[in-house]
Amino acid sequence: MHKINRVTIVGGTHGNEFTGAFLIKKFEQLPDLIQRPSFETITLLGNPQAFAAGKRYIDKDLNRAFFSEDLQNSTLSSYEDIRAKAIYQILGDKNQSQVDVIIDLHSTTANMGLSLMLGSYHPFLLQLASYLSSVNPEVKVCYTQAEKGSNFLRSLCELGFVIEVGPVAQGVLNAEWFQKTEKLIYTVLDYLERCNQGSIPESENTLTFYQFIGTIDFPRNEYGEIQAMIHPQLQFRDYEPLTPGDPIFLTLDGKTISYEGTSTVYPIFINEAAYYEKGIAMCLTEKQIDFRF
C-alpha cells in the first residue's frame, strides 16, 4: 500500500444533511483536530448553495453527477453539474487523483446507524472496514456498486468511501449522530496515520458486510401515486432479515402486502425520505459473512 499523503473530508454533498456539513464547519474552525503528522487533511463543503438553502440540491442530485462523460460534457449547465466539475478539478479522477482518500459524510432518515458504504473490494478499504467494525460494533459495512463509471462523488478517488449515519431528519442537526460521526472520523484518521507508520492496527481477517442486490419501490397506481406505506413491522428494521411472507407494505386502506421474494434479504435505507423521488422504498442486500481478503 502506497503512503497516504492527502485526505479529503467532504460534507454537505446533500445540502439538507446537516451532520456532515456542520462537521466541515467545525473542522474549518479547528483544523488541528483532523491533521495527522504524516498526511494532510483538507475539507470540502460539497454543495454550498443547497446547504445555504437547506435543500438536498438546487437543480439535481450532486451525488449522481460524477459520471466521467458528464464531467466532460460542457453542455450540462445546472448548478450541480457545474459544481461537480469544480469538485472534479479539486480532487481529480481515480487515475489522476489529487487526494489518496475521500471520506464523504452523509446522513439518512433511515435507521442505518453507523454505516460504511464501499464501492469496491479494494484490499485497503476491506482492511479499514474490518478494523472499524471490530473496534466499534455499531459500524455496519455495505458494498453498493463497482466504482468504474460511478456517478458518486466518492468514485473520484480509488480509496473513496461514504460514512452514512441515521436516523436523522432532513435539515436537522442531531448531536448524537454528530458526535458519533466525528468520533468515527478520528478513528479513520488514526488508522491511516498508523498505516503510514507501518503499524497497521490489528483486526480479524474476516468481514461481515451487506451486498447490494436491488431496490423495491412503493406500490403505485397507474398515475404513479403511492398506494401503500412501509409496514409498521418493517419500519426502522434496517439490516434485519426479511423473509418471504413477512409484512413489507400496508395499503392505505389497511391491507398487508407481504414480501414475495424467494430468499431472505436484509433491507437498508428503509423509507428513506430522499428516495421517494427516485422510486425507492428500500434497498435490498444479502448478508455476506466471513469474507476473507
Rank of each mutant, 00 (worst) to 15 (best):
E277Q: 14
N73G: 13
S155V: 08
R237A: 02
E138A: 15
G254C: 12
D32M: 14
P232S: 06
G46Q: 09
V7E: 01
L159I: 04
D290F: 09
H14S: 11
E204I: 14
L207Q: 04
P31K: 14
R154N: 10
L156G: 01
C142S: 13
P137C: 06
A52Q: 15
I90Q: 12
A53S: 13
A273Y: 10
N63M: 00
E80M: 02
I42E: 01
L284G: 10
F18C: 14
P201E: 15
G198M: 15
R56F: 02
L114K: 13
E158V: 10
L250W: 01
V188S: 06
N5D: 03
K3L: 14
E138C: 03
I230M: 08
D70N: 11
F39G: 11
G54S: 12
M229A: 07
E158P: 00
F67K: 15
A86Y: 08
V99G: 05
M1F: 12
E286F: 01
F161R: 06
V162E: 08
L71T: 02
A273N: 05
L76F: 01
L44D: 03
I216L: 15
S199V: 15
I216E: 14
F269Y: 14
A50D: 01
T206H: 13
L114Y: 07
V172S: 07
V7W: 03
I163T: 05
Q35T: 14
V165R: 09
T144S: 05
D100M: 13
K85S: 07
K287W: 04
G92H: 06
N47C: 11
K255A: 09
G224I: 05
M229F: 07
P247D: 08
D93W: 01
T251P: 04
E164T: 07
T108P: 00
Q288K: 15
L116V: 09
I268E: 01
L33A: 14
L118N: 00
L71N: 11
F152P: 00
D70I: 00
G214R: 03
T264Q: 11
F39R: 12
R64T: 00
E286M: 12
E80R: 01
